[in-house]
Every structure is written in C-alpha cells, then in structure tokens.
C-alpha cells in the first residue's frame, strides 16, 4: 500500500458531513434535550436542567403501557415469525419445482409500503365487512371487533406484524440453507434418518447463526414499531390507546403535545434498549467467528 495521506478524507467528506449533521449531532442533542425541562424547539428556551423529563416519563402510565405493549409485541411477533419462517424456508428449500415462484411470493411483503398495506389490513379487519371475520364466520366464530375493542387491538397488530416480518426471515433462512452441504443430507438419507430428526439434528443447528441473527434484528425492529400501528389504527394508537408503543409514545409527545424534553427522554430509553440488543448480537456473532 502507498504511504498515508489525507486524500482519503476528500472521498469521505460528503458522508462525514451528513453523518455529523444528521446522526452524531442529533444524537448528542437528543441526550442533552432529555435533561432540559420544558424545552421548546421553536426558540430553544428551557426552564430547568435535571432529571425532570425522566421523572415525568416514569410517572406517566401511558409510558408504562407503551413499554408493556412493545414487550408483548416483541415476545409474540419475533418467535412466531421465526418459527413459521423456518418451516416455510425448509419446505421451499425442499421443493424441486416452483422454488423461485414461492421465494418470489413470500418475499413480497418486504418491499411494500407498510402504510398502504396496513390500510388494506384495516379493511380486512373490519368487523362488519372484513374478510377475516367472514372467514372466521365459516367456522362458526362470532364477528370480532378487531379494531374497536381494546382487548383485540394488540392481537390484530401482532397478526399484521407477523405477516409483514416473515419475508425477511424466510429470505435469510433460505440463504443459510443453501450453505449446508448436500452431503450431510445424503448421508442421513442413506442411514434412513427420520425427517424430523434430520430437521432437529442437522438443519436447525446449521442455521443457528441465522436464527440468532434474525431474532436480534427482529427484536430491534420490533422495539421500534410505529408505522404498523399508525396505519392499522388510522393514525391513532388503537381504541383507548390500547396499542400504544414506545415509538408511538415518543412521537406523540413530540408532535402532538410539544413535550420535546419528555420525547427526548423516551428516545434515550429506546436507545439504551436497542444498544443492549446490539450488544447481545455482537457478543453472539463474535462467538460465531471464534468457533
């Protein structure tokens, strides 16, 4: 390699400027803002410095509700999506015909706008004319007030989110399955190992890194859920705020109640959660590399 020179920075300049202005500065600024009581974005004024915003945050029952809902969302969506995706990916991988066809179909939700397709799900969840209640009616189940009753808001959101999140997982698992050497399967066939044993003893262990990766990425994404809520409940957080999530809470404080400091404090809490998730991911992938 040639000698070091600062020329590299000329190439990096555009990215560095954008990164400083729109990533690093706002990060520091958000942390600072979270310690300013009654901060106003319009003229930059504030009344106090300290933990007031955090006190407000942890006194607010809506914030706890948003934490609880987000946790329920993460716990339901991520494992269900991983398991279903794993099943579908293994089946697609076993297909001789239509492999490309199924892959194309199953990946479709990934590329579509959450907002637009959320509006369609809203229509399908409609309690009087929705397709879902009609289908349930065929099995003798009474119409469910999916979007109008607090107890059904989270289930509706979770069903929509599982549908949306499977595409990415299936893709990652399919890519992982292709790296498993065919020889192992052939050996298992010669030994006439039962299919289920092949699945639990060969497929799942070989895919373990991808499963961990998908889980962490899925968890990080699920902690940041917002667009799904917005589109399914037409800009609201479900009946009586029953489907309020952390990010929804932050944006609501910021955009509708003008409580910038509290919103910033909420976003710092979110940041810490995401940071913890990322540390788990780094730990796990680090171990993978060691092995």
């Amino acid at each position: 390699m040639e000698k070091k020179s600062f020329k590299g920075y000329i190439y990096l300049l555009p990215s560095i400027i954008i990164m400083i202005c729109f990533t690093l500065y706002p990060l520091v600024r958000a942390i600072v803002m979270s310690f300013l009581g009654d901060y106003s974005i319009i003229n930059g004024s504030y009344k106090s410095i300290g933990f007031d915003n955090y006190k407000d945050l942890f006194k607010d029952p809506d914030f706890f509700k948003s934490l609880r809902n987000t946790s329920i969302y993460v716990i339901c969506v991520v494992p269900a999506s991983i398991c279903l995706s794993l099943l579908i990916a293994v089946l697609i991988n076993n297909c001789k015909k239509f492999k490309a066809f199924f892959q194309t179909v199953y990946f479709l939700p990934y590329v579509t706008s959450v907002i637009a397709i959320g509006i369609v799900w809203r229509w399908m969840f409609n309690s009087n004319y929705g397709l879902i209640n009609y289908a349930l009616g065929l099995f003798g189940i009474e119409p469910i007030q999916w979007l109008n009753r607090p107890e059904y808001a989270m289930p509706a959101l979770i069903i929509f989110a599982i549908w949306k999140s499977m595409a990415f997982n299936i893709l990652i698992f399919l890519a992982g399955l292709q790296t498993i050497p065919e020889d192992i399967y052939r050996a298992a066939r010669i030994d006439s190992t039962p299919r289920f044993r092949v699945f639990t003893r060969i497929t799942v262990p070989s895919l373990a890194p991808m499963i961990v990766y998908s889980s962490v990425i899925g968890m990080i994404g699920a902690f940041k859920v917002y667009n799904e809520v917005f589109s399914l409940f037409q800009g609201k957080a479900g009946p009586a705020n029953s489907a309020i999530t952390i990010v929804y809470y932050i944006y609501d404080k910021f955009y509708n109640s003008y409580k910038y400091g509290v919103a910033a404090a909420g976003s710092v809490v979110l940041f810490l959660i995401i940071l913890a998730m990322t540390q788990i991911q780094l730990r796990v992938t680090g171990e993978k590399k060691k092995n």
């Binding site: 990164m19 990533t23 500065y25 706002p26 990060l27 990080i220 990010v247 910021f254 990322t278």
Partner: peptide, 17 residues
Amino acid sequence: ATLMIPGEMLIITNYET
C-alpha cells in the same frame, strides 16, 4: 457504530435542525 443508533431517536433533533 452509527448503525446502532435508532433513527427514531434522531428524528426529534433533525426536525429542529
């Protein structure tokens, strides 16, 4: 490292900018 920062956190201050 910036990949770890949730974009949701930056939106408030970017809006101010």
